[in-house]
């Protein structure tokens, strides 16, 4: 390996970019594929319930199921808007 090759490698190491991108997408897709079929429906129902109280977008809800050996964790992440609309959040209705 010549000195030139050494510098060329540092500059053009596209293989490591490929590896990083693959690790991210493969991990993401494995999670997607292991999701049970009801998860999408569950997400929709949860959103309907939350929407009754807070005006939010479906993109702000994340439902994730993680397997940890003999038990699974259902994680629900809801990003609420900065300002809670008082009318909907309160008991006025």
């Amino acid at each position: 390996m010549s000195l030139f090759d050494y510098f060329a490698r540092k500059k053009n190491n596209t293989a490591s970019i490929a590896k990083e991108r693959l690790q991210v997408i493969v991990a993401h897709e494995r999670r997607q594929n292991n999701k049970p079929d009801y998860l999408a429906a569950l997400q929709k129902d949860i959103m309907e319930v939350i929407k009754k109280y807070v005006d939010i977008d479906i993109d702000n809800i994340e439902v994730q199921l993680d397997n940890h050996g003999n038990f699974s964790v259902l994680e629900l992440n809801v990003t609420l808007p900065d300002k809670l609309p008082a009318a909907k959040a309160g008991n006025s209705r």
């Binding site: 053009n12 596209t14 293989a15 490591s16 590896k19």
Partner: peptide, 9 residues
């Protein structure tokens, strides 16, 4: 040359 994914990768 770092242009292709290696076996280990």
């Amino acid at each position: 040359r770092g242009e292709m994914l290696g076996v280990a990768d």
